[in-house]
Design a protein around this nucleic acid. Sequence first.
DNA 1: CCCGCCCGTTACCAAAACGTTACAATTCCA
DNA 2: TGGAATTGTAACGTTTTGGTAACGGGCGGG
Lengths: 231, 231
Amino acid sequence: MNHSVLIADDEEDVLKLVGSSLKGAGFKIVEAQGGAEALEKALEQRPSLIVLDVMLPGMSGLELCRMLKGDNRTRHIPIIMLTAKAQEIDRVVGLELGADDYVTKPFSPRELVLRVKNQIRRSQGGDEPDDTLRAGDLILDRLRHSVTVKGKPVLLTATEFKLLSLLMERSGRVQTRETLLNEVWGYDVAIQSRTVDIHVRRLREKLGRASDCIETVRGFGYRIAEVQQAR
Amino acid sequence: MNHSVLIADDEEDVLKLVGSSLKGAGFKIVEAQGGAEALEKALEQRPSLIVLDVMLPGMSGLELCRMLKGDNRTRHIPIIMLTAKAQEIDRVVGLELGADDYVTKPFSPRELVLRVKNQIRRSQGGDEPDDTLRAGDLILDRLRHSVTVKGKPVLLTATEFKLLSLLMERSGRVQTRETLLNEVWGYDVAIQSRTVDIHVRRLREKLGRASDCIETVRGFGYRIAEVQQAR
DNA sequence: CCCGCCCGTTACCAAAACGTTACAATTCCA
DNA sequence: TGGAATTGTAACGTTTTGGTAACGGGCGGG
């Protein structure tokens, strides 16, 4: 064990926050305050994981992420992005850049530690129990942020992806619009629940026939159809 | 239900704000103005969650947090820290000490309530302990919003579902039409009790033979048969 | 700087769900 | 047994809800 984690952030506070949380979980910490420094340390130390703030002085976290994922020497290292706003992460994460996970500020340390552990276990375990969700012909891969229907890829926007991801994660259980707003959009956003409908609609549109598995539960919310596996 | 939340803060305003928000969300509130008082009440009342200001007179919130998390009797209680944005260093330390989440001031009450709920849900049996109700061949799953008779799904409308849910929850006990109106429809609706009959009827219709378990108690209301199967 | 994409809002419509009324059936008691 | 109270049944108009289309703003990429 004893994995090392590189934390790249310009704010002293955040560095300490993340650092102490992870130290408490038994990780060795490497800190970097700027993008260039982070890149350098990533190459030099080859940490098991990188926690990366979206906003970094000098080089943006996005840029850095792209570089790390574009370099064969660092490509395999999981990256968790930190972002201030749920909005921000939407565009940024994973989708194009290849980050492996993200956490929005303010976040609970427990959550961060869990995600870090998850990513490390995943990357270590080699083939691992890869994080893929299914529902009928639908396959969603959270690692690569990809969705396929009968093997054919479907391009989703960030919000659509998170929405579908959450629904599938809680497959069979009804999710109220409010729940979805909280989990997908974040706490304290002033968005009306009707907007959820719209995104569900767009999702269904893109998924075509496979969208049959997204059920509307009138008066309550939405749900992914339970596959037949009684319990 | 009916969780209690301990709020520790020296500012009267914050106490009131947080208190009323959480009360509105259905929590029982215990207040404490100082660190010592908070510790005492935490031990004495064992609240479901503690909201803790970083800065407290007498004993700092950080100190208190450390103590609470170091004591087996209180370790399991989730702690949410309140911090003034300027003193980020404080929140860092607070988290280092094992707080479970934090909210920065100024915060929206809505967000705080959501985080409180989240933490409580997490600390309680983690994620959903599958709450499902039974009566003979009837199985009702509230999380999935599904009802089955002998394994076959039955589609209910929202009102029907809530009605059946309440009846089954209080299986064996007679529920008056008035009670049902209050609990299913809400407290201040002006709906005549006759309407309940209609929904019971529709329920019975959909449930088929399984509706035998819904008994009419003439002059009083309705009830789910306690022990059916006999006869 | 402009263009295009993504997102959130609004407006409108059809269908589902709801609550009321009217009436028939059942039960209880005199 | 008959009548009153109570509940079951049926039909109907209204309200609510979710699907759909279209609009405008914001942000990032070119």
